[in-house]
Each structure stands twice: as C-alpha cells, then as structure tokens.
Simulated scan of single mutants.
Amino acid sequence: MPAAWLCDRDFNCEDGTDEQDCDPEELRCGPRQWACAGGEQCVPGVWRCDGQRDCEDGSDEAGCPPRKCQSSEFQCRSHGCLALRPVCDGKEDYADGSDEGGTCSPSACHRARCPHACYQSPHGPVCACERGFELGSNGQVCKDVDECGKPGSQPCSQTCVNTQGSYSCTCHPGYSLEPDGHTCKATGIKSDCIAVDCIGRNLYWVVGTAGRILAVQLTAVWRGKSEHTIVLDDLTQPRSLALDPLNGLMYWSEIGGEPQIEQAGMDGSSRKILVSQGLGWPTSIALDQLSWKIFWSDDKFHCIGSANLDGTGVHVSIPWY
C-alpha cells in the first residue's frame, strides 16, 4: 500500500490498520492529494477546481479561477458550467440557484435571432450551435469547428478531411476504413517493389499480380479517392524496379512466362527489352551509374547477372548454392 494512504482517515485495509496509531490532530495528505480546509478529509489533487464539490466543506472549489464554459453551456454564478437544456426548467440544478429566476421566459426566444437553437436563461435568450459548430464573438453566428486542425486533436489514424459541421476520415491507397470510421487497416494489396524519384519528387511502385507500375507525388494527400498514375498496365508479372531520374528512365524485371529485363521512360514511353536471354527468375535489379551497368539476382539459376544499360555486354557470375 502506498505510504501516502497511511493516516489519511480513509480506511484502505480491511482491518483498518492503515489508520491505527495516527495523530488525531494531524491529517496527512499525499503529494497527489488536496487537503480540505476542514482538516478532516483528503481528495485527489485533480479534483481541485474541477467544478464539482468534493470536500464536505466545499473548499476544493473555493478561490478557483473562473472556468470558461463552452458556447453550449451556461455560466453559473459560482463559475460552474451547466448544459443549457436544464436552465430555466423550474428546478435549481446548481447550489447557488443562478440557473433559475431572473428573466427566464418561454417567450424570450421569439425575439432572438439564433441560427441554430435558442434557450432561455436568467439573463435572457441564449443562442446555441449544433454539434460541430461554435458560437462567434457576437453571440449570434455559428462558425464551423475545424476538428482536423484543433491542437492536440487526432480524430483519424491517417487523413482527416474537415467538412461543414463535421469531418470525415479517409485512408491511403492499400488501406480501408474500419467500422469505427476513424481507423485505417491494410487491405492486403501487396507492392512488390518501390522506388523514389528524388528529382521529380514521385514514388513509384510495382504491383506484380496486377501487372502494373504506378506512381504518385510524394506530397500527395489522400482525400478519399486515388490520385496515383498508372505508368504501365500491360505487363506480365513485374517484380523489381529501379529508377534513373537524371536520364528520365526506369528499369524493371519480368518473372512471368518469358522472364526479361525492360527499360522505358519514367512516363511509360519508349518501352523496350534490354535482356531476354539466360534469365530464370530475375527478382531484384540495381543500377550502377558509374560503371553504366545494371545488375540482377536470379533466384532460379542462383546467380548474379549484369549488363550495360543498353542491353549489351551480358555477363553471368558463378552460381551460388
């Protein structure tokens, strides 16, 4: 048991031993507790100035700075906040009774010009806004709340799109929105290889099962629909991809019925076959700009191959086992 619970006049042990042999004149509160003014009660420190009376003498709410109520709440005389609906309902909901009396009148809202809703209060009619809106400084205009831009707010696991009075969550390509409307889950779409165009600031990837090479801007933001570009979509079974942004070229390997290594412009133009002989299953390729060569690993023949970037000078190393 924490030492702070000893002699706090709250029996935590079933046999009451935590409150035995204590000084009857002194109440010891823990470092995270608040000592009520009466000297006979300790309450959690977080209950201090929370708008609710926890000490029997109410000292935990004494001397607290005024709490700013939301536009959908009524500010009581004791600085507490109360929902607008029970205000002026003929029943005192706050101990100070400030939520009743005054100019409470059912007809008060007939003269008010409230855009969403109006409630009577002891100070006259009060305009209120629907969920997703907040009252403007003049008290008569409801403004949209940007839930996506609120500091410390992360309502969506990936992309948040603010809408009028609300917001929606969307997911990146390859993810789907869960039933909770906030969480994105991978759908199982597999990218066989990705490559970055550091000059054009684009991301390329290969989807072998679909026979496609796709691209998207690195700065793209998912807004509910795909913004990627299909660079090539008539491939057999592409597997690996390498980019040459300086020359605007891309290279990829095919591992389908006719394995080969091909080249095209980074926009998919000028497609041609570089290597088509002596290949088994070229699963990975890499470029060496200094030697002007392309290298590949062959998982079927268990070897490393190389060629010039124009397809000449094909060379296969000793197989590994």
Rank of each mutant, 00 (worst) to 15 (best):
R9M: 06
G90C: 14
D146L: 07
I318D: 06
A112Y: 01
A35Q: 15
G256I: 10
Q20P: 03
G39Q: 04
F301W: 08
L232R: 08
C129G: 03
C29D: 08
A3K: 11
L246F: 12
Q140V: 13
T103D: 11
R271S: 04
W205N: 08
D288V: 07
T183Q: 10
E56Q: 10
S269Q: 12
D93H: 15
V207Y: 08
R131M: 10
P125C: 08
L6E: 10
W281K: 10
R111Q: 14
D99G: 01
E227T: 15
D15I: 01
P173C: 06
H228D: 03
P125D: 08
G39M: 02
C109L: 08
Q158N: 04
A37T: 06
C22P: 05
Y204T: 09
E227P: 07
G280L: 02
T209D: 12
S297G: 14
N202Y: 08
T209A: 12
C198A: 13
T236A: 15
V314T: 12
A3E: 12
D89P: 11
G45Y: 00
D244T: 03
D89R: 13
L249R: 11
L27G: 01
E147W: 08
L279S: 00
C303L: 15
F11L: 13
M250T: 03
P173L: 09
F133E: 07
L6W: 13
A83N: 11
C76L: 12
C193F: 11
S105G: 10
H302D: 12
A215C: 05
K272I: 01
A286M: 04
N162L: 02
D89L: 12
G256R: 11
V87L: 09
V141T: 15
C118T: 10
D89E: 10
V316C: 05
Q277C: 02
C142W: 02
V206N: 05
L203D: 06
R67W: 11
P151M: 07
G139V: 01
S269I: 02
T187I: 12
S240L: 02
P151W: 06
A35M: 12
F301L: 13
L274S: 07
R113N: 09
H172L: 13
G188T: 05
L243P: 06
C160I: 09
C76E: 04
G208W: 09
L84A: 05
R201N: 14
P115N: 07
S153G: 00
T229H: 09
R239A: 11
S253W: 07
L241A: 04
A83W: 03
I189R: 14
H172E: 13
W5E: 13
P122F: 00
G174N: 04
